Amino acid sequence: MPQNQRDIKRRINSTKNTAQITKAMEMVAAAKLRRVQEAVQQSKPFLAKMQEMLAGISKSARWIKHPLLAERPVKRTGYLVITGDRGLAGPYNSQIIRVALQEFRGKDKSTYTVYAVGRRGRDFFHKHGYPVGGEVIGVPDVPTYDSVKDLARQVVAAYAAEEFDELYFIYNEFINPVTQRPVVKKVLPLSDVGTSHESNTQYLFEPDAEAVFEKLLPRYAETLVYQAVLDAKASFHGAQMTAMGNATDAAKEMIETLTLQLNRARQAAITTQIVEIVGGAEALK
């Protein structure tokens, strides 16, 4: 077999192996996405009930004050930036980092703190000297509350201690498996607690409404962190599923192109051989 044909066949086999890998990764990402979506659906009733209870307390006892509700002059800002631990998800990570850099542009590094979720973002911010106040990496493919609770509590406690005066989440919001939208969402202070959920339910609090509010409000803020991580993880799996699907399609197109090249090379070789045979026969006459 001529060298050119061997090279083409080698490339075809290599591309087929790559297509098998990307197809498998696409299927795995789709399975993980379904599991994360189930986790999101399971967590929504809990978050809704917390919102309902907080709204009820706020309406019945408007005199209650809490550091997480306090609006202060903004001297320092906190940013919770959620990226992935891995790549192979198209522009998922670079998109979030780019949005974060747009938020940081023109600001002195002493005026904000970054809390990084995900290895890609964490490594980038450390490498380029951004002020990282906390981090968590290795979040499971289907996040649990325990996997992010330490960072969530750290962020909430830092706001309550007035280490910064507002908190923003920067992450990819899940729209559908093929669409993820980067968002910058202001979370703290929790200025909309009293209006975020309407309910006529009457609650009895033990020992009193103030004590319940004191315990419930930080947990609610921590749950918002967990919800954002769930949303971002669903976006990651959706982005990876799309990227691997596109890679598989590209591999199939390349295989078709290489197969056509191989057939043409074979045809040219056969034609050359026929010409040589005919030429040899003519020479013997």
Rank of each mutant, 00 (worst) to 15 (best):
D165L: 01
S110E: 06
R98E: 11
R105A: 14
K16Q: 09
Y145T: 08
G87N: 12
Q20P: 09
Q102H: 12
M1A: 08
T257I: 11
K49G: 12
T144G: 14
I97H: 06
L80T: 12
S60W: 00
M241A: 04
R6A: 14
K107E: 06
N13K: 13
P67K: 07
I8F: 04
W63K: 11
Q5L: 14
H66F: 03
K23N: 07
T259R: 11
T113F: 02
K32A: 09
A100P: 00
V114N: 03
H128L: 06
R34P: 00
S147H: 07
R6G: 04
R105F: 12
M25N: 13
G121R: 02
T201H: 10
R264G: 08
Q37N: 09
A250G: 04
G56L: 02
A243G: 09
I12T: 01
K107T: 01
F125R: 00
Q227V: 01
K149L: 07
P182F: 07
G78C: 00
E162W: 06
N93A: 11
L217V: 02
G280R: 08
Y145Q: 12
Y112T: 01
D85K: 01
V225A: 03
V142E: 05
L88N: 15
L167M: 13
G84H: 01
M241P: 00
D249G: 09
S196M: 15
S14K: 06
V40E: 10
L88F: 04
F213P: 08
A30C: 05
V155N: 03
I82G: 03
D7V: 08
D150C: 04
R6P: 02
V139F: 05
V178R: 15
I274S: 13
L54A: 08
T111Y: 04
T111A: 04
S43M: 07
Q5E: 15
T15N: 11
K23G: 03
F169L: 06
D85G: 05
G279F: 03
P207M: 10
A157Q: 12
P73N: 13
N200F: 15
E222D: 10
P131G: 06
P143A: 13
P67Q: 09
M25D: 15
V156I: 12
L204G: 09
P177R: 07
G121E: 05
Q37I: 10
V99A: 08
Q41W: 08
G78P: 03
D146K: 06
K49L: 10
D7Q: 14
I274Q: 09
I270V: 11
R181D: 11
V212S: 10
Q20V: 09
F205C: 13
F236Y: 08
E198V: 07
K215Y: 03
L284A: 15
F205G: 14
